[in-house]
Design a protein around this nucleic acid. Sequence first.
RNA 1: GCAGGGUUACUCAAGCGGUCAACGAGGUCAGACUGUAAAUCUGAUGGCUUAGCCUUCGAAGGUUCGAAUCCUUCACCCUGCA
Length: 412
Amino acid sequence: MTTDFTFKINKKLGDETLARTGTIVTPHGKVQTPAFIVVGTQATVKAMTPEMVKAAHGQAVLANAYHLYLRPGHKLVEKAGGLGKFMHWDGPTFTDSGGFQVLSLGSGYKKVLPMQSGEVAPGETAAKPNERHAFVDDDGVTFKSHLDGSEHRFTPEHSMQVQHALGADIIFAFDELTSLMDSYEYQVESLERTHAWARRCLHEIEKLRKKDHARPYQALFGVIQGAQYEDLRRQAGQFMGALPFDGYGIGGAIEKDKLGEIVRWVNEELPQDKPKHLLGISEPDDIFAAIENGADTFDCVSPTRVARNGAFYTYEGRRNISTAAYREDFGPLLEGCECYACQNYTRAYIQHLYKAKELLSATLMSIHNEHFIIKLVDDIRASIEAGNFFELKETWLDRYYGSPKAPRSKKT
RNA sequence: GCAGGGUUACUCAAGCGGUCAACGAGGUCAGACUGUAAAUCUGAUGGCUUAGCCUUCGAAGGUUCGAAUCCUUCACCCUGCA
């Protein structure tokens, strides 16, 4: 079995930061980092074809093991020739482990993913047992399917088997994602569990790699948890850093104000020569903060979700297309933008599509938003190469968050 | 001409003596969305000097402590019978 997965650092910004550029090589192609990885949970980037994703300069796509296990089934995807072949995406692919659903269907059920600390009694979790769809124990997680209520069990071994069948180039260890609403005591307990699971994932993937040695190598990324606590994050970085993962995910409950710090804590403990993926983040200020502190890749549902719900990115902040001001605006979503939507359609037309609930508005807005965030990360990569990262950061963020009417991202 | 039914806010539509500035839906306006239970959710939607006040339920008059709700007349619409 050959390890056709490598990561090479191309350029470090300097000694004062952890920012760097690099190249991840996978069996399905390269990813130039920093890179924004487009999310396609159910083996589709919602409202977009893979060709559109490519045209928006998407380098890789991330799908979800939990969703594909439930439907259409990981075995079916395997029969189809794997995730990429199944969805007609020939570039690099990632899969998430189902760990996020431990939170979204469990502790954080109906609470989304709060980016601020809450107050919960010691030992408590955010959601009460009777209001959740996922139940964690030391061995794994029992889910009630959001599709039909049927019961399913995910263990670290099972997540590896599912992700192995899906066949993505980069897969994630099964972790427990906690909420900032959970108590410190619970975070400690959960972290121990995630670490025990990490070892089991490594063990299982080794078995699977040996069994199917002819298959392309799947890189396994361990996930760093520890919520908003420096001691836990550093401890997690040390523990996971000592294990033979191909890269690392930085996940879980991240307090927005501390995002840069948290990424730094973790990256100061982890081996420098491994790629770091920050899970589920794409707000511009967060991206700058994360890259400055050593994150190499990101993924996030936000660009497409927000697009479907009528918001689009501009250099002056995020705007809602439905607003009356755009009714007779015959300019593009963003002046000068090179995406397909901006090259061919007007705000007035897209507003009409959105208000008429026409599917095409989701497509056009998604194309624009993905293009915008991908380009932001691409521009940041170029600025690191050129040595003007901090100039870009200052002017870009000032314009985005400082412009009138721009909705400032929540600071609480 | 006779008999019956109807007219409520931008639209549709509840209400049938006080708890009604008036349910609900749509529309409109604004906002949120960070490893997707999300093409979803939240708020506002008569006016104002907004913990209160003022003006509204086809029009005018009346009954009543009190009327969108009851009575009278008028206007317009619908359905039968002539």
